[in-house]
Nucleic acid binder design. Sequence first.
DNA 1: CTAGTGATTCCCT
DNA 2: GGGAATCACTAGC
Length: 216
Amino acid sequence: MIALSDATPLPRTFFDRPVLEVAPDLLGRTLLRTTPEGQIAVRLTEVEAYDGPADPGSHAYRGRTARNSVMFGPPGHVYVYFTYGMWHCMNLVCGPEGRASAVLLRAGEIVEGAELARTRRLSARGDKELAKGPARLATALNVDRSLDGADVCASGDIPMRMLNGAPTPADQVRNGPRTGVAGEGGDGDVHPWRFWIADDPTVSPYRSHTPRRRRG
DNA sequence: CTAGTGATTCCCT
DNA sequence: GGGAATCACTAGC
C-alpha cells in the first residue's frame, strides 16, 4: 500500500469553476476507485477540457441527449461514454451547472492497486501502460456506463473519489491540441486544451485526428 | 519510435 | 447509415 501524499477529498467547489481552470489543476492529483475486489489509485498525468455547447469538439455541441445529459448537470459528477464499439472513457463535470463542460481523464500513473488493474489490462507491457490512454484508464479502473452520473464528492463509501494528491507546479504543466478532435493539431490548433505533466512517461502519445476511409 | 488498419456497437441524423 | 474524445497489432525504420 503506497502512502498517498495527501488523501484529503477534493470538495465540490474544486469542480465548480471554469473547466480551463480545473483541467490543469487536476494534474498530479489522485483518483481513488473502490470496487468489491479492492482499491486502485491513479495519479492523473494527462487531461483534456471540453467546454460545453459552444465547443465543436464536445459531446454537448449538439445539445442535450440521453447519452450526455450528465454533462448538463451539477459539477463533481462522472460522465462516462462508450465509443468505437468497445471502449469507455470517463470525464469529470465542471461548473457552473448547466454549462455542460467536463474534463476527459486521458492518462495516469497507477500508484496503488496495480495488480488489480493488471487483471483488466492483460495486454499492457509494463505498469506505465496500464492507464496510458483514456480507454485504458477507464478499463484499468473498471469504469463503464453503470458509473455514469456518479458523484465523486458525495460522503460515505462511494465508488470513486478525487483526492488532493500533489498538484503540479505551473512550470511543469504543458498544453497543446486535443487528441483525435477534428480541426485541431493542424494549422488550427483551435483549442489547445490538452494538458499534461512535462516528461511524464505515462502520458499517451499524441495522435492528430485522421479521417477514416469508408469500408467497401 | 512511427504509420496503417481492423475491430465492434451505440447513438444521432 | 455512418461516424465515433480508441486500442492492439503488424510492418518497417
